[in-house]
């Protein structure tokens, strides 16, 4: 049971954050493709903006990987039947899973808007890049808490 819960946590971090990023990058990609049809020279700029909401998926992977490393799927000690320990891992992974999903979706909106901005005023790329990056802060904070929590669980 313990191992199952821990695995559930690790999986949901990769799962939800990954799903969020996939949807978000897809949305931003549509907007980016639209911008490139108007002006192909914008490609590299809008590509960066498209990729911005993709980081949540990477953070999710990161948490999943650290958690898997700790719970013994890839080395380390298995929680075995220790339900409390398993649940601790599950809880530690939650911030990344939930915040990763939602922040990716929200960030994609900022990205789409930033792509529209760059389409109209390509010289304002530097500023356009910051708006989606603001949303990402919260994914980073969640990542931080998840890392600290996993590390704090006595193995």
């Amino acid at each position: 049971m313990g191992t199952t819960f821990a695995l559930l946590g690790a999986a949901s971090a990769a799962l939800f954050a990954g799903v969020g990023s996939a949807i978000a990058v897809g949305r931003a990609g549509q907007a980016a493709a639209g911008a490139v049809t108007e002006d192909p020279s914008l490609f590299s700029k809008v590509l960066i903006l498209q990729l911005l909401p993709g980081t949540q998926g990477i953070y999710g992977l990161l948490i999943a990987f650290i958690a898997l490393g700790r719970i013994g799927i890839m080395g380390g000690t298995l929680p075995g039947d220790d339900v409390a320990l398993g649940l601790s891992y599950f809880a530690a992974c939650l911030p990344m899973a939930v915040v990763g999903l939602i922040s990716a979706l929200q960030q994609s909106k900022a990205s789409v808007a930033a792509i529209a901005l760059v389409e109209k005023r390509p010289d304002q790329f530097g500023k356009a890049m910051i708006f989606p990056a603001m949303v990402e802060t919260y994914a980073i904070l969640a990542l931080l808490i998840s890392i600290l929590a996993i590390n704090g669980i006595p193995a």
Partner: peptide, 17 residues
């Protein structure tokens, strides 16, 4: 100040991947 935790997070992302 908390925002600089991205130094840790992004650094970890590189090394974990």
């Amino acid at each position: 100040i908390l925002s600089y935790s991205r130094l840790l997070a992004l650094g970890l992302a590189t090394s974990v991947i």
